[in-house]
Amino acid sequence: MKKLIKILLADDELLFRKGIAFLLEREKNIEIVFEASDGSEILDYLKNNQNHPDIILMDLKMPNLNGVEATKIIQKEYPEIKIIALTSYDSKSFINNMIQVGASSYLIKNATPAEMIFTINEVANNGFYYNDAVLQVINECATQMPKYNNLSLEENFLTSREKEVLELICKQFNTQEIADKIFISPRTVEGHRTNLLLKTECKNIAGLVVYAIQNKIIDIGGLIV
């Protein structure tokens, strides 16, 4: 049985938001905990309610507080919440900007319902999901993205096992799959993931992907199908 995923929907277009809510509520493992029309309503909800979402579907262009600024604040104050950008903007600059501020995925509004459900489940299970188009943008924009303090790799900065786990994370395998592939326990995988975050000073799994691309630890061609 799939684990329950709690979702907050943020979009100022009521008809679109209700349509997405209708689609998601048909999924047995998804629960809509709140709907917001702008970033300020999201922050008010998070501040005043304990039933926090696992994932926020975030529109970018909203009144009062837009999705980019809201994402910055949420990543700082509620880093455990994953952000999926859901927007009509598909330019490299918008994608790059949202990845920089911590979005775990990026969906265009003309995506199919199946693509949206798949993305939500991947983010819930793995911490992020970047499709081929987004991975390509990350690769092209990697040199423009802010680099982490420890970006300059020394020969033994990451162990061979940590690099192996990082490569599998970037290929979007979950904890159990990584454990099965390299014959270690899921708990050990989690330990390597924690060490990777601490060593690289990345804030989340999505940041590790950018780190790996910037440092040429992974070949982008091997990630794009």
Rank of each mutant, 00 (worst) to 15 (best):
K47V: 06
M116S: 03
N126F: 00
K92W: 12
Q100F: 00
S40W: 06
T119V: 08
E77V: 11
L86V: 09
F34I: 01
D11G: 08
S93N: 14
I117W: 00
K82Y: 05
D38I: 02
I30N: 12
V33A: 11
E115I: 11
M58P: 07
K92A: 14
I56Q: 01
I73Y: 08
L107R: 02
A21T: 09
N66A: 04
E25N: 15
I120Y: 04
L15E: 12
K47N: 13
V68E: 11
T71R: 03
E13C: 01
I83D: 04
N49H: 15
I84V: 12
I81N: 03
D38F: 09
Q50R: 12
T71H: 02
N48L: 09
I81E: 05
I84T: 09
N110W: 01
F34N: 14
D38H: 15
F34W: 13
N66E: 10
V33H: 13
V101P: 04
I95N: 01
I20Q: 05
S93T: 14
K76T: 09
S93F: 11
I120W: 04
E25C: 07
E35Y: 08
L15T: 14
I55H: 05
I99E: 04
G102A: 06
N48K: 08
S37D: 11
P113T: 09
K82D: 12
N64I: 10
D38M: 02
S37G: 15
L60V: 15
T112M: 07
L60Y: 06
I42H: 04
I99D: 01
F34P: 03
G127V: 01
N97F: 00
Y106W: 04
L86C: 10
K82E: 11
L107N: 05
V68C: 02
N51K: 14
I108D: 02
A103D: 00
I32F: 11
S40G: 00
G19H: 08
F34T: 01
Y89F: 13
E41G: 05
D90P: 01
I42Q: 08
